[in-house]
């Protein structure tokens, strides 16, 4: 079966599922977008024999920040990591299904994973700057990917990235200081600057504020707001208010399945699924 046939069959299966009884009386938010940046269909992830993600299909567009929410162990981080093949680093992890970036199969043997991760950057829960200077943290990616033709261009990339990450004004006079000497919130923004420096198309954020205080969290949220539209952004968060504040679309995961995916404004005021409501209102479990 060709890639296109397989994809069409998956789309047809999703369409059939969408015509089920539950969807018949409720206007269902379509999974598919007209022009998705990332398009995942029928994704399964296994850790050894244990299935962590079950038949998840979702589209991520450029215009919206997407939040993944759900209880611990629901698979939201696992699914996020499939979007730039971070699960490849786990020997027992196995991914099935179809994930495309601009229509290109990211699990194709032809895909250069290093290039993929430059196009789909990632920011983690705990800020993880390199034990290098602020400048070198940001310059690292452009250097290894050969994105700058000389020192002047590299300087420009570093400054632009730090400005976009909202950190330039705080560090412009101490670029040679160690990145690890910054505060937690500044370190996280440095990591975002580092991700931005290689000019990615997508930024994945895995609980980027969980180790930060409220002010640093507000700065990251403001940054997400400012970056919206320039990059497709997906954020995993346990903080429901944060998901409601920063995203335009929200996906609720439970026990490895995607329970509900729709407009954030609707998910948090009038969710369609009982499970979603129980989770966001604090009745879960």
């Amino acid at each position: 079966m060709t890639d296109d046939n397989r994809r069409n069959e998956q789309l047809a299966r999703i369409a059939r599922n969408n015509m089920g009884e539950a969807a018949a009386d409720v206007p269902s938010e379509p999974i598919g977008l007209a022009d998705p940046k990332i398009s995942a269909r029928g994704v399964n992830v296994f850790y050894g024999a244990k299935q962590a993600i079950k038949d998840v299909s979702i589209d991520v567009g450029m215009d919206n920040v997407v939040a993944f929410i759900g209880p611990s162990g629901c698979g939201k981080s696992t699914f996020l990591r499939t979007l730039n093949r971070m699960n490849d680093t786990i020997p027992i992890a196995r991914v099935e299904g179809d994930i495309r970036l601009d229509g290109e199969d990211i699990y194709s043997p032809k895909m250069d994973v290093v290039q993929l991760r430059a196009r789909v950057g990632m920011v983690f829960q705990k800020p993880n700057p390199f034990p290098k200077s602020i400048y070198d943290n940001v310059a690292y990616g452009p250097r290894i990917h050969g994105l700058a033709s000389g020192k002047a261009e590299l300087d420009e990339i570093v400054e632009r990235s730090l400005q976009r990450a909202g950190l330039w004004n705080e560090v412009s006079d101490r670029l040679s200081d160690s990145g690890t000497a910054l505060s937690g919130g500044q370190q996280q923004r440095l990591c975002i600057a580092r991700a931005i420096a290689v000019d990615p198309e997508v930024i994945l954020m895995d609980e980027p504020c969980s180790a930060l205080d409220p002010i640093a969290t507000a700065k990251i949220e403001e940054l997400i707001h400012a970056l919206r539209g320039q990059y497709a952004i997906v954020i995993v968060t346990h903080n429901m208010q944060q998901a409601a504040r920063v995203s335009q679309r929200t996906a609720f995961f439970h026990l490895g399945t995607l329970v509900e995916y729709g407009k954030t404004s609707e998910i948090f005021t009038n969710p369609r699924e009982e499970k979603t409501k129980d989770y966001i209102t604090g009745r879960y479990g």
Binding site: M240, Q241, A244, F268, T269, N270, P271, K277, I280, T281, G282
Partner: peptide
């Protein structure tokens, strides 16, 4: 205090 959502908020 509770930052209510969905039916609680309504």
């Amino acid at each position: 205090l509770r930052a209510p959502m969905a039916d609680d908020l309504r």
